[in-house]
Amino acid sequence: MASLSLQAGGSSSRALPSESTVSAMSGTERTTRPITTGTSVLGIKYRNGVMLAADTLVSYGSLAKYKNAKRLLSINSRTLVGGSGEYSDLQSISDLLRANALADRCTADSLYEEDNNEECAKEVWSYLRAVMYQRRNKMNPLWNDVVVAGFSQNPDGTTSDKPFLGIVDKIGTAYEDDILATGFGGYIALPLMREKYRPDMEEGEARALLEDCLRILFYRDCRALNRVQIAKVTEDGVLVSDPYELDTYWDFKGYQSNKGEMGTDGGW
């Protein structure tokens, strides 16, 4: 607090606080809730790789603020990351992982052996688990659920043919599975994926299933959009599609009939 100094003549004046006093008064600030958020990310293993899917909407509360935000990120030639939650925190995670990937390449024995020096997906997943848990312990979490997809690594540094799919949440809880979903997709899309999933699915079947789930999420999730991205990891590398729009169907009888049987348009 500012000190009170008495001067001759009985008048008083308030001394200006020092920089250290101002710093002590303001304290340490923490993000208490996410502001601009993305919704569900879906992941699935199939015969030859792993596939992720997400829409491109970032919402500011109930406002559809950014409609072309890419939430599927290529970290290196064998790892994909998709994130829901606070978009600025996802950008921070992306910068951190790409800085690590650049450091690995710069400190490698040879710049011409990139594949042998890149982190595999499971290593990225384990690292994110530690980062999320450390930030949570400092009461300053990254407000994201992150899905990591790719392949494991053999002891000699080569890429394994065993696909990997894992998730890490904002408090450091992490697990692996054949199918994963974050956000509202954990309630709507995940049961549909469990019903249709087979370990030997072809790439086209996996993509069709993910698109169907994204379409249903667009119908049911107020923070979802029909503009989406699909990304895959195979032994040949990583491929992230450009955003595109899903076809939708609105001619269901339930959408056309009057609500409440009051002869109105359904509004209240």
Rank of each mutant, 00 (worst) to 15 (best):
K70H: 14
I75C: 00
L190M: 06
G267D: 11
T32R: 08
S74F: 03
M193K: 01
E123Y: 12
K162L: 12
T36G: 08
R194W: 07
S110A: 03
T21R: 09
K253H: 11
E261N: 14
N144V: 01
L63Y: 15
L217M: 04
S84M: 03
V148S: 03
L52N: 04
T32K: 08
R98E: 02
G204R: 11
G172W: 07
L111F: 05
G260N: 06
E203Y: 08
R33K: 10
L57E: 07
W250E: 15
Y46L: 06
D265K: 07
N68M: 14
Y197Q: 06
G172T: 07
G82H: 03
R33H: 11
A64Y: 08
Y46Q: 05
D242H: 15
E202S: 09
V22Q: 12
F164H: 06
W268E: 15
Y60S: 11
V147N: 02
R227P: 08
V240K: 01
K259Q: 09
W268P: 10
S92E: 10
L63Q: 14
K65P: 07
F164I: 07
V81Y: 00
E86P: 00
F218H: 12
W125F: 08
D247A: 12
G43F: 00
R47Q: 09
Y187A: 11
S12E: 15
C222A: 14
A108D: 00
Y60H: 13
S94F: 05
K253P: 07
G150R: 00
F151D: 05
G83K: 03
E195K: 11
R47M: 04
P191L: 09
Y127V: 10
L72N: 04
L192D: 08
D55V: 01
V124E: 03
T31W: 07
S152D: 15
T32L: 08
L225T: 13
D115V: 02
V22R: 09
A2R: 13
L16M: 15
V238A: 06
T264V: 07
M132D: 05
T234I: 03
G150D: 06
E195C: 11
S77T: 09
N137M: 12
Q229D: 10
V58A: 09
S40V: 08
S88V: 04
S84G: 08
T248Q: 11
R71D: 03
Q134E: 13
V131T: 06
S74W: 06
R223S: 13
A224Y: 03
K170S: 14
G186R: 02
L52C: 05
K65A: 13
R129M: 11
D104R: 03
D265S: 10
A149K: 04
E211W: 02
A231D: 05
E205A: 04
Y249E: 12
S13T: 15
S40E: 05
A15F: 13
N76P: 02
N117I: 05
A121S: 03
R33D: 14
K232N: 06
T37G: 02
T248Y: 09
A15K: 13
G166L: 05
I35A: 08
T31Q: 09
A2H: 15
P34Q: 06
D109M: 07
G183V: 00
S26G: 11
S20K: 10
Y249I: 13
S18H: 11
A224Q: 04
L192T: 12
T28V: 10
K253I: 12
V124A: 05
V238G: 00
D200V: 03
D251C: 10
L90W: 00
V41C: 06
V22S: 09
G150F: 03
E19A: 15
K138H: 12
G204Q: 13
Q229V: 13
S5D: 14
S160E: 09
